[in-house]
Design a binder for these strands. Structure first.
Length: 304
DNA sequence: TCATGTTTAATTTCGA
DNA sequence: TCGAAATTAAACATGA
């Protein structure tokens, strides 16, 4: 829980567990897999609280990666030199934070634990790792292809990258946003115009401490500040209501009327008829996450 | 040597 | 109040 800061806002602990922070980091990159060092970096970049006591929380984070079945270790390919493996979210881990709290899951994800799974997604960690690595390649290909396409009205459509049926990733941006539509202080999220730094209420101290976000300065968003969805990461990484208010849109549980459906729907609902990848390959359905929506991809290709 | 990864155990925190 | 999830600490192994 966010506690009132002792000295500055920056020493507040964000209301996210290590699991949710890690998942956020993984989901923020287009390949949906990150090495440990990049996960550290993501967290420290976004949350000043974690720029201190690094040994402590990084040990905890590593513990979480190994201990929780929802994280899968993906070995580096020969063309990906470097230290350590990549980490990804298990494609079947589903919405672990369905209770609305990013601090505590109702139940831990266990492989073969009886969760609803996509039949096309392997559940065994080794198979899932291979599968995820393949999907990461496809995503990169799609992003690469999209970056070289002429701009289409309404933005690129990357829905050609295969998506699993009926799966909605817990850290897909639409999920996070759907939970965060009610900002502390009463500010409502108003897509499709994403909240910008200057619009963020000071009630999100984690993002403001240590001068990380200068609300007075002109908005300057580096490419790295965007998630794979074209969403400024800085705007999605803030405390959320631990207990969101009930749904207000019939048929879209948890979604208020002012959240556009495209942010709340699973990716494939945007374009259910495009099973081919941008590279022309056919492949099994992708794990449950989303590539940038057609509305957001124009600014979405992150630079790493 | 250091970063990464695994495992165990104790403790804290939170939801039912 | 209790059980489970999360956090923290620590020891140890492995590989670049």
């Amino acid at each position: 829980m966010p506690r009132p800061g002792r000295n500055t806002y920056s020493d507040q602990k964000p209301p996210y567990s290590y699991i949710s922070l890690t998942a956020m980091a993984i989901q923020s990159c287009p390949e949906k897999m990150l090495p440990l060092s990049e996960i550290y970096k993501f967290i420290m970049d976004r949350f000043p609280y974690y720029r201190e006591n690094t040994q402590r929380w990084q040990n905890s984070l590593r513990h979480n990666l190994s201990f929780n079945d929802c994280f899968i270790k993906i070995p580096r390919r020969p063309d990906q030199p470097g230290k350590g493996s990549f980490w990804a979210l298990h494609p079947n881990c589903g919405d672990m934070f369905e209770n609305g709290s990013f601090l505590r899951r109702r139940k831990r994800f266990k492989v073969g634990g009886g969760q609803a799974t996509d039949p096309l997604v392997p559940s065994k960690p080794q198979d899932a790792a291979q599968y995820l690595q393949q999907q990461a390649k496809l995503r990169l290909s799609a992003l690469h292809a999209a970056a070289h396409l002429p701009q289409m009205p309404g933005g690129y459509n990357l829905s050609s990258v295969p998506q699993p049926s009926g799966f909605k990733h817990p850290f897909a941006i639409e999920n996070i946003i759907a939970r965060e539509y009610k900002m502390p202080g009463g500010l409502a999220f108003s897509a499709p115009g994403y909240p910008l730094h200057s619009q963020l209420p000071p009630a999100w101290p984690h993002m403001y401490g240590s001068g990380m976000v200068d609300t007075a300065a002109p908005i300057s968003m580096a490419a790295g500040d965007y998630s794979a969805y074209g969403m400024p990461i800085k705007s999605i990484c803030h405390p959320v209501p631990i207990k969101p208010t009930p749904a207000s849109v019939p048929g879209l549980p948890g979604l208020p009327a002012h959240i556009p459906a495209f942010l709340a729907n699973s990716p494939q609902s945007l374009s259910p008829t495009s099973p081919q990848t941008a590279t022309g390959q056919s492949s099994p359905a992708a794990p449950g996450d989303s590539l940038p929506s057609s509305a957001s991809l124009q600014s979405a290709v992150p630079v790493h």
